[in-house]
Nucleic acid binder design. Structure first.
Lengths: 145, 145
DNA sequence: AAAAAAACCGCAACTTAATTGCGTTTTTAA
DNA sequence: TTAAAAACGCAATTAAGTTGCGGTTTTTTT
């Protein structure tokens, strides 16, 4: 009998596919990424009610990132914040997130702006490998409050 | 007799105009900003050969920033890094730096890409106050080495 | 299925950037 | 010139993230 997460995602299978050990915590952590848009260590610890050590969280995130399961996204306080990779667009060493991000200064959440593509730019004297477009302000929820 | 910095900039006058105390250190620090593209606390301490306390540096930078003399720029290690504001384009509460920035992963320097304007974007559900376009890779110097 | 190897976990200690408190000194304003 | 305000420097503290290491779990090998 297969273990299926709340979202009908077989997290243990995904872990295996990415060469990550199928521990209970890592499976639960992956499930959490299917629920939350993006996560920081603090958020994860809070979710697990400090039943897990922060070092374990850091190391799990590192492992997930190296194996192309998650990628860093901007954070309002420059904390380490991650989102799930999109299977079609991301691989272990190249992340293709062709959209800008938005940071809300009130709720400190990070959003993907799916309707904002990254511009194609060139600048003399710079060999560009990666590009980030980060907007900051108020999200709808915080703006209307 | 007026004290004029190496670049013929009357730093003490500028401090006064911005309502910042004209101490020797703050004057020298401002001069330094006319020489260096951008500065971190570490860089400043190094420049002053640790003759000044880091707390003084932090507080001076904070004061300069609040008074619209400098503004934060991206940093490869997420350190606090600042550049001079442009008089015509910046005011105390609104910074108008209509260009992208470039971070070199090798030398860790931050550059302004004067030939890359920020795109005008809109995204449903987000009230955007500020926009950052950050490119990362190798600068000319590091690329040719 | 058992043994060996590899990866993971958790605790404590550590590192680094940045902040706070406070007594003293310098600068500014009246 | 004198009182008030701001800046300075030292020590201690905070917060995010890292490292080391012994013990446990998972994976791989046989």
């Amino acid at each position: 009998m297969k273990l299926i997460s709340k979202n009908n995602v077989d997290t243990k299978l995904i872990l295996s596919k990415h060469g990550i050990s199928r521990t209970k915590f890592r499976s639960d952590l992956l499930s959490l990424f299917y629920i939350e848009r993006s996560l920081t260590v603090e958020g994860i610890l809070h979710y697990f009610k400090n039943t897990i050590d922060k070092v374990t969280v850091y190391r799990s995130l590192e492992s997930f990132e190296i194996r192309g399961l998650i990628h860093k996204v901007p954070d309002s306080k420059n904390l380490k914040r991650y989102s799930l990779c999109v299977e079609q667009e991301c691989s272990i060493d190249s992340h293709n997130h062709n959209h800008g991000h938005f940071i809300c200064h009130t709720c400190n959440q990070t959003f993907c702006m799916q309707d904002v593509n990254l511009p194609r730019i060139k600048s003399k004297g710079f060999y560009i490998q990666e590009l980030k477009l980060i907007a900051e302000g108020y999200c709808q929820d915080c703006y209307t409050k």
